[in-house]
Design a protein around this nucleic acid. Structure first.
Lengths: 195, 195
DNA sequence: GGCATCTTGGAACGATCGGTCAAAGATAGT
DNA sequence: ACTATCTTTGACCGATCGTTCCAAGATGCC
């Protein structure tokens, strides 16, 4: 039963992404990937080569999906940094509240396990975090605050975002996560208005 | 060669703790534990029963070591919440800067992987995080701010602390981590003085 | 229709996983 | 010194890991 590919590669990446997201790289077995995608081992290896390559494609897909969502949220309130960051956190909070998707964050999960990832995967994770900081940093531009302070503030915003993912994995109630995000927004407000 | 135990159980827990801390529960093999402790499998199983029991003892030891350090730091500046939180973060930053100990934080690492841990281990991790929040919350008491806001602020402080651990795993420079902690301290200052 | 090319499912590979067990040596009580 | 009891070492267990391979079936070109 074949000849031409019988499945959509993008869909398979989506399904595999959920498993990595839920269980992390090391704890995701090939068996769990075949059952999640409905594919045989031959199909998976034919399409992706090996587990690690599939994982990096999942990382890229994750950042493509949520990276653009973050960008849209940040861009929805131009010249209003506090509103932008509120919208930024809303993306994460909505995702955490969405039962159709695993808890936490694939990037944060991978960052925590980066010592067991290959050097290439670790570097990819690092660059995705840097890209996110850059997104936030861009939306803070235009404030009268100096550049270095904005760099630090952007990193702070990203750091709190990661902590939301970690806390959500322990089953923290949404109300706690929301208040953490709210406090981070107040930090942004105080920092840029303090000048 | 035996009769009475040939090794110190506490030392073995210490050594095992480093491995779990560095690699996480799932990626820590029995072989890596035997080579880290210098013990045979029989000795490990005789003393601890199985891998999971050893892991929970490592969790407890970790929280015993750093829990008291956090408490001492928080208690060093009574009635000065901002100073207390600064000292609290200094414990984490010093630990991250200490090359004799793995990057990150065993609790944060375990929290991120809690979906692959047993229900008992997940609950233990959750209670350790709650205990840390309680420690911070206690040091914030006495402020004129209302109780619920202090609960939220304590959770915020703990959340940022976790994010420092995650970021340090990706190789973030200490200067970035320090500025993240400093911004969190300013949030504390602004929150408790705002009322 | 014949043939080269591709995909598929599943068997099978060696390696490694967590855990068990028995033989051998050391100890303490008598 | 004898014995019961303990610890240690390392071989060994079945299960599972990521990966490879192949026979069988489907496709497109001639």
């Amino acid at each position: 039963m074949s000849g031409r590919k019988q499945f959509d590669v993008g869909t398979a990446v989506d399904q595999a992404m959920r498993v990595f997201w839920e269980r992390g790289y090391a704890d995701t077995s090939l068996d769990s990937l075949t059952s999640a995608t409905g594919l045989g081992r031959g199909s998976l290896y034919g399409a992706f080569g090996n587990k690690e390559t599939l994982f990096t494609q999942c990382l890229d897909r994750y950042s493509a999906i949520y990276g653009t969502r973050f960008e849209q949220a940040l861009a929805a309130h131009p010249h209003n940094p506090v509103r932008s960051i509120e919208a930024f956190y809303a993306v994460t909070l909505d995702r955490i509240a969405d039962p159709s998707v695993p808890a936490g964050c694939l990037i944060a999960q991978s960052a925590a396990q980066s010592s067991t990832l290959s050097a290439e995967c670790g570097a990819r994770v690092r660059s995705l975090i840097a890209a996110q900081q850059q997104r936030v940093r861009t939306s803070l531009a235009g404030s009268s605050t100096d550049g270095q302070s904005l760099d630090e503030l952007a990193m702070f915003v990203v750091a709190v975002n990661q902590s939301l993912a970690v806390l959500s994995r322990t089953g923290s109630p949404h109300s706690e996560l929301r208040s953490v995000a709210r406090l981070a927004c107040s930090t942004v407000a105080n920092t840029i208005s303090a000048n």
